[in-house]
Simulated assay, not measured.
Amino acid sequence: MSEGSRHALVTGGNRGIGLGVATRLLADGYDVTVTSRSGALGEDAPAGLRVVACDVTDAASVDAAFTQAEAAAGPVEVLVANAGITSDQLLMRMSEDEFASVVDTNLGGSWRVLKRASKGMIRARYGRVVLIGSVVGLYGGPGQANYSASKAGLVGLARSVTRELGGRGITVNVVAPGFIDTDMTAALDEATSQRYLSAIPAGRFGAVDDVAAAVAFLVAEQAGYVSGAVVPVDGGLGMGH
């Protein structure tokens, strides 16, 4: 089966990195479904993307989203788990909810969509899964104990599922972006921006397309022998941490 006939689903695909990944996969010929909490796409989304509503913190919502996507395009063969949130706060000030909500969305949400997608992948004996992590998942970040822990957990999730399902033609990898040129980095003041840039050997923030290119490789047919890997897209910031 050609990549162009594969059904790919990208969670949180309505903006930022998720939308960039979905746009790249669409251009590569995949049949692409994206999820958003509202079930809507932004004005900058390209024509051809299918969208379904999904709250990754709710198993019933995840199941309903997959059921709707499968009814439209068949089983999900490529999954990109991108949906996530941040709620930065210093450790001593971080509330129970600030910790739990970030971990449940970023790590728990990835587990829920991977669990649901695996049903069809096991039957087909084929699947490509990419979990969108972060350089701070292994590098750490002050004020990001919740976010860093959630992203570090994706590595254990990917490697455990690789050991469970690797013999069924299913790969699970993590792409770990660094500082990517999005609305978040655009809002930084000049001094902060320069401080971050000085720590990146490449001397620039990454582009969404840089992340999308890494994902596109990992979900392709030729990446079938790559699984349980963490692929940094961070300009050298993490140095493989």
Results as ranks from 00 to 15, higher is better:
E3N: 10
S5I: 09
A8E: 04
L9E: 02
V10Q: 03
T11G: 10
R15Q: 15
R15F: 02
I17E: 14
L26D: 01
A27M: 03
T33V: 10
G39H: 01
A40M: 10
L41S: 05
L49E: 03
R50C: 01
V52D: 00
A65H: 09
T67L: 00
A69M: 04
A69F: 07
A69S: 12
E70N: 01
A73W: 00
V76L: 05
A81Y: 03
D88Q: 06
R93V: 00
E98F: 01
S101Y: 00
D104S: 15
W111R: 08
K119M: 04
R123K: 13
Y126L: 07
V129K: 06
L138D: 01
P142R: 13
A145D: 05
Y147R: 07
L157A: 04
A158I: 12
T162W: 10
R163A: 15
L165P: 03
G167Y: 04
I170H: 10
V174G: 08
V175I: 08
V175P: 08
A176N: 12
F179D: 03
I180W: 02
D183M: 07
A186M: 03
A186E: 09
A191F: 03
Q194E: 15
P201R: 11
G224D: 13
V231R: 13
V231Y: 11
V231M: 15
G235D: 12
G240N: 14
